[in-house]
Structures are given as C-alpha cells and as structure tokens.
Design a protein around this nucleic acid. Structure first.
Lengths: 206, 206
DNA sequence: GTCTATACACAGATAGAC
DNA sequence: GTCTATCTGTGTATAGAC
C-alpha cells in the first residue's frame, strides 16, 4: 500500500537541519540510483554519500521503496508532468508529450529509475504497485480524452480507436525509453513519438 | 558477463534423476518469478517449491542470474522467437510478430519476467546486460531488414524511416506488455501491433 | 554426480540509549 | 533527532557424506 501525500508528510522533519539532511538524502539517492540502478544501490551507500548513516536515513524514509518513491515524486514535480487533468488547451497535448520526452532525455537517471520501477511494480504485491497503477490510469485517461476530442473535431485518422491510440502512445514512450537506455545514440524517443502522433492524426494546415 | 551455451551445458546433469530435478527447478523458477517478480523470489523459495534445498539448486545453477537466464532461454526456445535471421519469407514478418504477441499473452509469467529483466538489465553492470543488448540488436536488425524490404517494394508508407519503424514496433510491443501486466483486460497487445503495422504499411490488395 | 550441513558477507530493518 | 548495536533474511560458498 502506498502512502498518500498527507501520510508521508506527517513524518517531515521539523528542524532546519533535519530538512537539509532530508534533501541531501533525496539528492544522493537520485544521483546514485540514476547511475547504478535500483538494486545496484544500498541504503548505506546513499547515506554515506549524504553524510549520514543508514539508520538515520531510515528515520526520514521508513523503507527503501518509500525513499525511491520520494525521488520519483521529486522529479515528477520538477517536470510538472503533462498538466493532464485540465481540459483547457487540449490541442497542445501532443506537443507536451514530446516536450516531456525531451526533458526526460536530459535526466537519464529518471528514465532508468522509472522504467525499472514501473515493470517491477507490476507485481500486485510490490509496495509501489498502487502508485504506478494510479499513475498509468491518470496518464491514459488524459490521452484518451485528447484523442476523443481529436476524433470529435475530425483530427483523428478515420478508423483509429481513441483508447488504442492512447495506449499506443504510452507504450511507445515506455518501450522506446528502454531501448534508449541500451543505445542512447541510436534511439530518438521524441522523434518516434512525433512520428506516431503524425500517423494517428490527420495533417493540419499550417 | 553472460556464459555462452557451451559453458552452461558443461554442468548438465548426467543421471535421469538429476535431469528431472533440474527441470523441476526450472519449472518452479518460471512459475514463481512470473508471479512475484525477479527480486520477489528467493532461491530458497524456488528450491522448496521444486522439492529440494537451495545448496542443491546452486549445484545445477551456479548463480541466481544463471538460473533466471536459463528460464528465459527455455521459454525463448519454446516460442522459437520470430525466426528472424532468415531472409526467406520476409513478407510474413508482421504476422509472425503478432503471432508471437498472442503466444506471449498465453504465458503471463514470461511477459512479467521479460519486461522486468529487460529494464533491470539496462544497467551496464547487470549480469544479463550483454544478453539483452544482443537480443535487442538481433530483433531490431530483423525488423529493420523487413522494413527496408518493404520500402524497396513500395510497401512502406512514404516518409517513414525503416529504422524508426523497427524501433517503434519493438517499443510498442515492450511498452504495451507492461500496460498489459497492470490491466490484462484493457490492453490488447496483438491488436495494438496490428494497428501500428497498418499505419506503417500501405494497404495491400486482398 | 548427488545431496546435506553449515558458514559467511552483506542487505534492509529495528531497538533503545543519549 | 541522532547514533550504536543488533536482528533477520538473502545470495553465495565450501566441506564432506553417500
């Protein structure tokens, strides 16, 4: 079961030093996990890099998964995700998806961590399962809404199912990022996304 | 470093009982890893499920990674992959890709294991890194050859890059399988692949 | 070759003193 | 809030009986 924001913030440090230490741990975790992968990093490594000990680290983050989840959340906030949820500016969704892919490419650690966690968390017993289930649900619903809108305004290629289109875009992004981890120079994730959108949508004038 | 076939088979059991035990371990490993994920399963769990002890398991498979790699290889042989590598019958590649996706859907454990390992092994230090690098290289090259062939015979939609098309198909398959793990009833992997092929290839008569 | 028993180093996690 | 000491479980290794 994944804690919600209120639960997690209940344990936030009160003092300035505590807050600084928490931030240092978060930083070190992001750096190391990005470099060596989820399982390649130990809590002792992270604690040492942050200038502490691992029991103290566990005082701020009750479990390793909770720490990694906090790292993901930090990055997610920075990227501000896609701004799905709002119905205004629906037409700019493709641009925003591509831009997010470009931002991701600038932070390889994020991609490595996210792809690893998202497949590991597919097991129902995984501590992050609910978090990722919800995440997929939200993103897919946002894209679905966009493609339905496109269909209604004649922007969708005839015969394409909006649900399938949404799933395909997410799948392409996730799968392409894995390939990118293996061969960063040969895979252009934003370009592949642009191509897929181009084949799903009818050409617009201008 | 991943062992090649000759190295691995050097340690194969000679007796009938040994062979049966090895097979039982392989079976149990496939089942449990498929259910609980790579890290969610211990060697002692697998050994118990196979009716043995973990030191004996390590007599047949020197390391946990070697065991999991053997599981992957077993399933790969059963599916016979795509038969890429041969240049005959190039036109049936799309059908074979879709058929493989259908076979995969029948063995959920394989998908769970493969998606988990393929992202975990993207870290260069991972014991299975070379194996998966080679695997991606082979599959991508086969698909690239197909799309080049399609381009030469006028079967490829104008403006589509054969390399990008190959990467997109693999990305779609991998990404869709992850979504399928989260929501098996809502994601139709073979259907998504059929759709993607349809948008990349010009309609054929008949 | 097959199998049991045991030991080790390291991981994540806890208890409790200050 | 912080730190020391400690626990349990994991992958791995080895010694030696049959």
């Amino acid at each position: 079961m994944v804690k919600n924001r209120a639960d997690v913030e209940q344990g936030l440090p009160r003092s300035a030093r505590g807050r600084a230490r928490r931030a240092a741990i978060l930083d070190a975790a992001g750096l190391l996990v990005g470099r060596r992968g989820y399982d390649g990093v130990t809590l002792r490594d992270i604690a040492t890099a942050a200038g502490t000990t691992h029991p103290l680290l566990l005082h701020y983050f009750r479990t390793k998964d909770e720490l990694l989840l906090a790292v993901v959340d930090t990055w997610r906030e920075r990227a501000e995700d896609l701004g799905f949820g709002r119905d205004d500016d629906l037409d700019t969704v493709p641009e925003r998806v591509v831009r997010l892919a470009e931002q991701n490419a600038a932070t390889p650690g994020y991609i490595a961590l996210f792809t690893t966690l998202s497949s590991a968390a597919s097991a129902p017993e995984h501590p992050l399962h609910d978090h990722f289930t919800e995440r997929y649900r939200t993103v897919l619903e946002g894209l679905r809404r966009y493609f339905r809108h496109a269909e209604a305004t004649g922007g969708l290629v005839p015969g394409v199912d909006p649900d399938a289109a949404a799933q395909s875009i997410v799948a392409l992004q996730d799968g392409a990022q894995v390939q990118w981890l293996y061969a960063p120079d040969e895979v252009d994730v934003p370009g592949l996304l642009r191509g897929a959108f181009g084949r799903l949508l009818v050409d617009q004038p201008g």
